[in-house]
Structures are given as C-alpha cells and as structure tokens.
Design a protein around this nucleic acid. Structure first.
Lengths: 124, 124
DNA sequence: CTTGACCTTGACGCTGGGGTCAAGGTTTAC
DNA sequence: GTAAACCTTGACCCCAGCGTCAAGGTCAAG
C-alpha cells in the first residue's frame, strides 16, 4: 500500500502521514524505488493517532498508544503506559480548566468593578 | 523618557515595548536622533496592556482599553468598548471551558473502558 | 580618542500540526 | 511516446508574543 492509499483509508492527508513519520509514529518500509510501503496495521495506527490528536494530545503523547498497537494488542489503550497517558492528559485538562476558571473569576470581578465605577462615579 | 526607562517602570522588556508599538498600542514621539520618547502616561498604558495580556487577551483585544486611557480616563475599563471586550473575553473563556469539560468526559470514558477491558478480558 | 551603555531597524527562532508550492523521478494506461 | 497520476525531499507559511542576535548610529564620561 502506498502513502495515498493509507491516507485515504485512515481519513487523513498524505502530508499528515509524512508528518507523523517525522514525529517517529510510523516507519514504513521502502520499495526499491524509494516509495513508502504500508500494511493494514498501519491504517489502525494512523487512525489511533488522529483520534488522540483530536482529544488534544500532542504527537509526542501518542507514542505509548502506538507502541501498544505495535506490540500486537488489538486496542491501543490497554497497556499501562496508555492508561498513564490518559491520566496525564486528564490532569492537564483539569489544570487548564482550573486556570481558565480562575481567569474567568478575575474577569467578572473586573467587569463588575468597572460597571460599578461607571454607575456611581461617572459624573463625580 | 527613553525606551529602557519606560520598560523598567512598566515592568516589561524593551523588546515587548517595541512589539506593542508594532501592534499599534503605543506611538511614541521621536527625538531628533530617532530615539523613541515616552511620557508618564505611557507607563500606565504599557502596564494596562501587560495586565490584559496576562488575562489571556490578545494584543488586538487590548485596543479599546488603550484608547479609553488615551481618551483621558483614569481607568482603562470604564468605557463601553472596554466592558464589551471584557464580556467577549469571558464568553471565549466559557466556550473554552465547555470544550475542555467535554474533552475531559471523553477521556475519562476512554480510561474507564480501557481499565474495564483490562480487568475482564486480559487473559481471555 | 575610546570605551561602554544606550539607541535604531531588520530578521530569524520558537511551538504544533500540518498546508502548500517547487522541482523532479516513476509507473501506469492508452 | 506521452500524458496522467503517482511518488520523493526540501522548504516556506500560519498563529502570538516576544527572545535573541546582527550591524551600526549616538552620547556622556574619562
């Protein structure tokens, strides 16, 4: 299977596939003419990477899942390292939500203060 | 006042001041030798910009506040446009929190599924 | 006169995940 | 034999907010 076929089956662009390779997520063998050659398992890998990226993970963070698949598992997330990666990501999201919530509080405080100032001291 | 003095008083780097200028947030007059010259009011502008950026606003979004200060107000957020900018930013933060919350839900679902799978089918 | 501390504009680097040419080699189909 | 549809590597572009040189002008102190 050539790169375009893989990309179509996995639902990504050819460019994306090459990008994943540059991040060390797929390593296709090469045909004598230099063309990349993929097998069916690679389709699953690319799909998994896509799914994880859409969950906000970085390419780097998808490594454990990819290795889990390559180890022969039918699910990418049954390995301990994958579970850890999920937990780390959840912790990141929680931290980000906490930051944004604090930020929201500061913004509403500022808004209320500014509105109050306008109401009471506008013509002072 | 030269750029380094302004930067020190406002608590930012010289580079940051020039960046704000490139974004149209400050427009110092020039001395005959080409040096930028600032007045005391500019210190307040730069501080305000810093504060708003740390609240997650973009340089673009700080414009109304800067204009409010330049209009002679002692507070940058008493102008209607500033209040609107606060509200827009709050809405953005809310939207982002909603996204992250949904994401968190997906992640915990996946985590639970993977853990369940491991517990019940590991040796199947 | 020279050092040193300023100042100027210009321009590349960084982070993520690719988009989008460029320029050229290969293979397939007619 | 040639056009279409592939494939290859290389490299610049995007977004934000600067950091960090580069190369050179200015100015006060000794």
């Amino acid at each position: 299977m050539h790169i375009k076929d893989l990309a179509e089956r996995a639902g990504v662009t050819v460019r994306a596939v090459r990008y994943y390779e540059s991040r060390g997520l797929i390593t296709p063998r090469r045909e004598p003419n230099g063309y990349r050659a993929y097998d069916d398992a690679d389709v699953g890998v690319v799909r998994e990477v896509r799914a994880l990226l859409s969950l906000g993970m970085t390419a780097e963070e998808t490594h454990p899942f990819v290795e889990c698949l390559r180890a022969g598992n039918d699910r990418a997330d049954v390995c301990p390292a994958s579970l850890s990666a999920y937990r780390r990501r959840i912790a990141e999201v929680d931290a980000r939500i906490a930051e944004l919530t604090a930020l929201r509080g500061q913004l509403t405080d500022l808004l209320v203060q500014a509105e109050t100032y306008r109401t009471h001291e506008e013509t002072a």
